[in-house]
Design a protein around this nucleic acid. Structure first.
Lengths: 346, 346
DNA sequence: CTGAAAGCGCTTACAG
DNA sequence: CTGAAAGCGCTTACAG
């Protein structure tokens, strides 16, 4: 490593030593002043804090973490974020964690197989906590996190592991609400448009929806497997309507993006939404409200999910050994827009 | 700090000391083995590297950075990311940097005023580099970065400072292409729908578009100030068409999201796109290709912008003092879809 | 080519 | 309540 690689010493950061010398105190005392639980004379503490602020002293977090074994870093793992729901979660979560003095190290894996490698790299930075957004993690990777002492929180996607920490919408309840809503509107032939089969969100919404329909005494909804959470998948799914035993009069799609694609696919078939088929999505992303789409959908309780996650993060960062716990937030309201319509009694 | 806060020692990471003892070598030799430029007997190095892999040794990056003054961290600052263009950039950039062994610390500031605070916090982690995405930074914050020895790269948004590093699309050229395209289609009464007035992207697209129109001998385009890069802004902008001296026959919107809102606004006025007004966007985000929108637009050269940024990042991380340099990438092709239409000669 | 020693910037027992 | 000393996990002159 050559001299050029070194940052020029002229703009050396101020260290505890500098601050201590400046104040004529020992390094120990100065350091203690920054820890509320440490014992220092109140007057001394005040002096130190004031002077620190004045000359711009900030403890080097790397030196700190070498000793405390805590990094104030939370690793955020994201994979597929074509759903606009995720960027919002990502940035808001980051902003909220910053307020708590936690910093976010972002790890992105476009291909799912790469998630494990990415997590490995992340662990090198000893995050106090890892949050998994919209991604699947191999159980090996989860294991690795736990061995490294970094608990994982799964956000909006559960792995089903007993020991896992998670925050998610109560998707079963969401599915139930949609079934009730559509049946109350007079629909009889329901369809569920499924997305990524392994996603718990997909599985749970389907479960709530289908089981509720049966409970209400109508035929079990038919299911079309779109395969993923994307516009294209939704669009393609619509083409399979013809293969169904009978044309449905209402469809619940795994999320908004799928719904928007599905609707366009339905229309390309010469059918009308909502006249022939009512369509409901899930998430209530911003574009669902655009006049072009005017999508009836279930609102994701994002504010509460975020608040719970942040609180949970704070707790787990302080107690990495806490037993697995999954928070299920009740879904937001069903927002009725232009893609659903009452059916006449027949 | 209580004992509970400490991670249990049972899963202590393996350190150089452990590895050295295991190998019966000195810590110095072991450490050197990991630096290709350091002098170690090839056989020794091989032994160390193999054993390290076997017992899972990875150097503690915090201890390393304490000495080397380099962190392998790049700070990524984002503000408004409602434009789907940004999440893509964010995750792809992160993935690409990971490949180079650089990690991304994400800083998010929903409110622009908070960006400075966020940057301050970020600087505490001594990033080797800061990348500013879609955000404005006060010159004070930029100054602070440079004093901390962390060069900044502005991505897709230039501040106009002489010393700045930047990577951006050549937006002036993009604007020119749109003007040429619309004029060649026979349009005469052009309109520019402006977004955030201080964004260089907005300013440059407008400049290229308007100046080219004049060069081509038609009336200078009228301008409607939408005010921001959002659907709502575009939608509201359309309502101001009535205030114009004459109704335009073609509009170039600052970006795709604005265009999509604008089109819906135009339609709500009872006008047709493209029969009455042709509309062109900028970015070619995924939804521009959706049948609902079928938006004619200029493709953002995102692959090249990303590649250049990553290369630039590598360079600046190695030489923070490099003089300011702005890379302007030629815009991608204009993608013709359903929102533009040839006019009859009159 | 290798090892012992110093030191990066902190925190925290341990004495006083 | 405060200070001197040890030590976190590394890298890197300095000797040999």
């Amino acid at each position: 490593m050559t001299v050029i690689d070194q940052k020029s010493p002229s703009r050396r950061r101020v260290t505890v030593k500098d601050l201590a010398k400046d104040l004529g105190m020992s390094v120990s005392t100065v350091s203690r002043a920054f820890y509320p639980e440490a014992i220092v004379a109140p007057a001394t503490r005040k002096l130190v804090l004031e002077r620190a602020r004045a000359i711009g002293y900030k403890a080097n977090p790397y030196a700190q973490s070498l000793i405390t074994k805590r990094t104030q870093i939370v690793g955020l793992v994201v994979a597929d974020i074509t759903n606009p729901f995720y960027p919002e979660v990502m940035t808001r979560l980051t902003a909220d964690l910053q307020v708590l003095g936690m910093n976010v190290m972002l790890v992105s894996a476009n291909a799912t197989e790469k998630v494990d490698d990415a997590v490995h790299l992340l662990l090198t930075y000893q995050p106090d906590l890892v949050i998994i957004l919209a991604a699947a993690l191999s159980s090996r990777a989860v294991q690795e996190c736990s061995e490294a002492g970094s608990p994982c929180i799964f956000f909006n996607r559960l792995s089903g592991d007993a020991a896992e920490h998670g925050v998610t919408c109560d998707n079963v309840a969401g599915g139930i609400n949609v079934a009730d809503y559509l049946i109350d509107l007079g629909h009889q032939r329901l369809l569920y448009v499924a997305a990524f089969p392994e996603a718990s969100t997909n599985v749970e919404r389907r479960k709530g929806f289908c089981e509720r329909a049966v409970e209400r005494g109508i035929a079990a909804p038919s299911v079309i497997e779109a395969g993923s959470f994307s516009y294209e998948a939704g669009f393609a799914a619509a083409k399979k309507i013809g293969e169904l035993p009978e044309v449905p009069d209402a469809a619940f799609c795994a999320n908004d993006i799928v719904a928007i694609g599905f609707i366009e696919g339905v229309r390309s078939l010469g059918l009308s939404v909502p006249d022939d088929i009512s369509v409901v999505g899930f998430d209530d992303i911003a574009m669902a409200a655009w006049p072009q789409h005017s999508l009836t959908t279930v609102r994701q309780p994002i504010d509460r999910m975020l608040a719970v996650t942040v609180e949970f993060a704070r707790k787990l960062a302080g107690d990495p050994e806490a037993p697995g716990e999954v928070h299920r937030i009740p879904p937001g309201p069903l927002i009725e827009r232009g893609t659903t319509k009452r059916r006449r009694a027949r």
